[in-house]
Amino acid sequence: MNRGDKFLLAGILLVSLLILAALYSRFSRYSTAIKAAQAVVVVQGKVIRRVTLPVPGKSSFVVRGRIGPSTVEIDGAQVRIREAPCSGQVCVRQGWISHPGQSVVCIPGEIIIRIEGANPLDAVTR
């Protein structure tokens, strides 16, 4: 093997590395989608909290929506709006959600809680 061959070999190695890097950068976008499930709380268009699921035991916290405070409860892998200040109580009645792709929405309070995560459904028709 002369010097030229060595250069060629080095070149080929470099080429393979670059291709690998390029493929990896594409692949990594997909791998970021495969992550632990998270409950994402959005109030009036802003993400105010992300909770990685499941959470051991029961816990709850208060979020301030457009019309007042609502209580969000987490129990293991499931999430719900436990109390809301609105008259309709649609979000409270909806109960627990636990599958990635699902969401609970409080329309008067402009609160969205959705579950993002591993192999999610793109959406749910309801």
């Binding site: 997909y30 989608a33 499931q78 009645r93 909806q94 109960g95 627990w96 959600i97 636990s98 599958h99 792709g101 699902q102 999610p120 459904l121 793109d122 959406a123 749910v124 028709t125 309801r126």
Partner: peptide, 18 residues
């Protein structure tokens, strides 16, 4: 991911079910 969109159909009696 260049596959079909995966759409869940809600369980009519369980709000968190598909």
């Amino acid at each position: 991911h260049d596959t079909s969109w995966s759409i869940g159909i809600r369980d009519p009696r369980k709000p968190d079910g598909i």
